[in-house]
Design a protein around this nucleic acid. Structure first.
Lengths: 330, 330
DNA sequence: TTGTAAGCGTTATCAT
DNA sequence: ATGATAACGCTTACAA
C-alpha cells in the first residue's frame, strides 16, 4: 500500500501538503492540489485509518448491541441503523449479547479502546450501574430498551400506550376475561413495567378485575405460544382474549389453535405485538401493536451522530407514537 | 486512557517489558510479570488497537456483506457468522449492499485499507472481475452466493438438487402443470442457473414439457407473491402447482389465495424455498426447501479465520446438502 | 502557500 | 532478562 510519503514524493511535495489535500484544508494552491490528486490516483492511495486514528481521529464506526439479530424487530432496527450510518459515512459493528452479560460488557469495551465512536444499545443485559461508566468514553444511546432513571439519550416507544390501546381494543370487542402474556417478568422497571401498567390501567378503567392466573411471564418464542395455548385449554376457567408480548408468540398460538380446533377469534381473541411482516401472513392475520422500528433506528443513529459532532451527548428522551393495527385475530 | 508508558512507569520497568507481558512472550521473569500485571490492573489499561494496527497487526474484524439484513435468511447467516466470529475473538462489521454496486465496492475497500481482516460476501452485486482485485488485500469468502468460475473459497448449497427434489416432489404428487417462480432472471450463472437447471432436469426426466408462460422471474417479496397469484387466476390455462424462490413469495401467495377463495393445495400446490420460521406459521404450513443457513455461516467464518491464520486463502468449494421439508401446502 | 519536525501508542531490533 | 530506540503512517504546531 502506498503511503502519504509515496504520494508526496511522486507529486514532488511534502507530506504536509498531501495531508492538507486529503483533509481538504485551505491554503493549498489549485496547482499543487491537482498534482497531489493526480499522484493519489496513480498510486491508488488510501489513507491508513489506523494511523489517522492514532492521531486522535474518529473511527467512523458505530457499534450496535442487539440481543439476537434473527429477531425481526432487531433485524429491522439494525437495517435502519446501518442505512442511516452509511449515509453519514459511518460503518456499523454489531454484537449480539444473546443474554450474555459478559459479551455485552466486552462489546462496550470497544468504546473504551476507541474501536467504535459510539454505541447504540437496543437490548440491555447488565444493570445500568455497570454500563454507566462507559459513557465517559463516548456517546451511548438507548434504543427501544430503557431503564427508567437514565442519564443517556433514549429513543423509545410509548409502550404504555401501546398496551393500553391494545387492551382497550379487546374490551371494546366485548371481552372481560383478558389474559396477559409478556416476555418479561411483570417487572418493576423499563419497558416491561410500562406495558404492565398499560394493561392494568385499561383493565381498571373498564372495571374489569385481573385474574393472576391469566398472567403469563417469560414467554418469548412461537414454541412458547404453542405451549401456552395448550395450557390455556386445560384451564377450567379461561380467558376469552389474550394479549401477547410478540407476534411470534401469537403466531405459535394460532398454529396450536388450528391443531386443536380452537377458532380464532370466536373462541379466543389473540393479539400480537410488533407488527412484524409475519403478522400479515398468519391465519387469521394478526391484530397487533405496531412498533415503528425503522424510525427508531434512524433516530437513534442520528442522535448518536449528533452527539459525536457536537462532541457532547445530550440526554434527550424521544418517545415515538405507537398504534394498533386491527386485523382478524380479534 | 492509560498508555503502555504509564504502565511501564508505574511498574518501574520499560515499555518493552510491558509489551512483552501484554503479548505474553518469553523472557520475562515471573516477578516483573506480576508487577506489570498489577500496574495494568490498577490503571485499567487496555492496549490501543489503533497503535497495534499501525504496527501491522490484525484488526480482528471480519466484514460481512449482505443484501438486506431484514431478510430472514441473511439475518440467520449474520447470526451464525457473528457467533462464530466472537467465539474466535473476532468482531463483525456489516454492510447491506441493497442492490447498490457502489456501496458494495466501498465496503470492499475496508479490506484494502485494512479496517477488516477479511470479508464474507453473501450477496454479490458487481461483476466478479471488479471484486477479484480485492483478494490481494485479504481473504474473501463467498457464502451462499457464487459465481461459477471463481478462485476464492465458496460455501454454497446444492441449489440444483434442492430445486430438483422440490420439483420431483410436486411431480410425485401428480402435478404436470408446474409453474416456476424465481428471484433471479432465469439467468445463466450462479445460484439462479443451478436452480433453473434443477427445474429443467426434473421436468425433463418426468417427460413434462415446460410452458414458458409459467416461468415468472424477478419476484422477491410477499407482495410479488400476492400479485402473482392474482395474475395466475387470470390465466386461461394455469399451473396446478408452483415452485417459488422464497418462503416470503409463497406466503404472499397463500394470503392472496385465501382472499380469492383458492384452496391450497387442492386448487394450487405452493412450494417455498428457505424454510424460514414463517414456513410453519402460514396456513397451510409451507412445504419448502430447507437451507442450512446456520451451518453455512459457521463454516464460512471458520474458513476465513483459517485463511487468516494460515496467511493464505485456500480455495475450497464446500457444498452443503439441502433437503425438502414437506408440510401441507403441496 | 509550503515545509520541517514532533508526536500518537505500539512492537521489533538490537544492545546490554 | 531487560531496556533504548527506531519504525508504522498520519496530523499539526510552528517555521519559513
Amino acid at each position: 500500500m502506498a503511503t502519504i510519503l509515496d504520494v508526496a514524493k511522486r507529486a514532488g511535495l511534502s507530506k504536509t501538503t498531501v495531508s492538507r489535500v486529503i483533509n481538504n484544508q485551505a491554503y493549498v494552491s489549485e496547482e499543487k492540489r491537482a498534482l497531489v490528486l493526480q499522484a493519489m490516483k496513480e498510486l491508488d492511495y488510501h489513507p491508513n485509518p489506523a494511523a489517522r486514528r492514532l492521531r486522535g481521529q474518529q473511527t467512523m464506526t458505530i457499534g450496535v448491541l442487539v440481543s439476537a439479530i434473527v429477531h425481526p424487530l432487531f433485524a429491522c432496527l439494525v437495517d435502519a441503523i446501518e442505512r442511516t450510518a452509511y449515509e453519514n459515512g459511518y460503518k456499523v459493528m454489531i454484537c449480539q449479547s444473546q443474554g450474555n452479560k459478559e459479551k455485552e460488557l466486552l462489546f462496550l469495551n470497544l468504546l473504551k479502546t476507541k474501536q467504535v465512536d459510539g454505541i447504540i444499545i437496543t437490548s440491555l443485559e447488565n444493570d445500568w450501574k455497570n454500563i454507566e461508566p462507559f459513557v465517559t468514553h463516548g456517546p451511548i444511546v438507548l434504543c427501544n430498551e430503557y431503564i427508567n432513571e437514565s442519564s443517556v439519550p433514549v429513543i423509545k416507544l410509548d409502550q404504555f400506550n401501546g398496551t393500553y390501546l391494545g387492551i382497550q381494543h379487546l374490551i371494546k370487542r366485548g371481552h372481560r376475561k383478558i389474559g396477559y402474556c409478556t416476555g418479561g417478568l411483570f417487572a418493576e422497571y423499563g419497558k416491561d413495567k410500562d406495558r404492565n401498567q398499560g394493561y392494568q390501567k385499561a383493565m381498571a378503567e373498564a372495571g374489569v378485575s385481573i385474574n393472576p392466573a391469566w398472567i403469563f411471564v417469560d414467554r418469548h418464542t412461537s414454541e412458547d405460544g404453542k405451549k401456552l395455548l395448550a395450557h390455556m385449554l386445560d384451564m377450567d376457567d379461561r380467558p376469552t382474549a389474550i394479549f401477547t408480548g410478540s407476534d411470534e408468540i401469537a403466531a405459535g398460538m394460532l398454529v396450536q389453535a388450528r391443531e386443536q380446533g380452537v377458532r380464532i377469534p370466536e373462541d379466543l381473541a389473540v393479539m400480537g405485538f410488533d407488527d412484524q411482516p409475519i403478522a400479515e401472513w398468519t391465519s387469521p392475520p394478526l391484530t397487533t401493536v405496531r412498533q415503528p422500528a425503522e424510525e427508531m433506528g434512524q433516530k437513534s443513529t442520528q442522535m448518536i451522530i449528533d452527539a459525536l459532532h457536537q462532541n457532547a451527548a445530550g440526554m434527550e428522551q424521544l418517545e415515538l407514537p405507537i398504534e394498533i393495527i386491527i386485523r382478524q385475530s380479534t
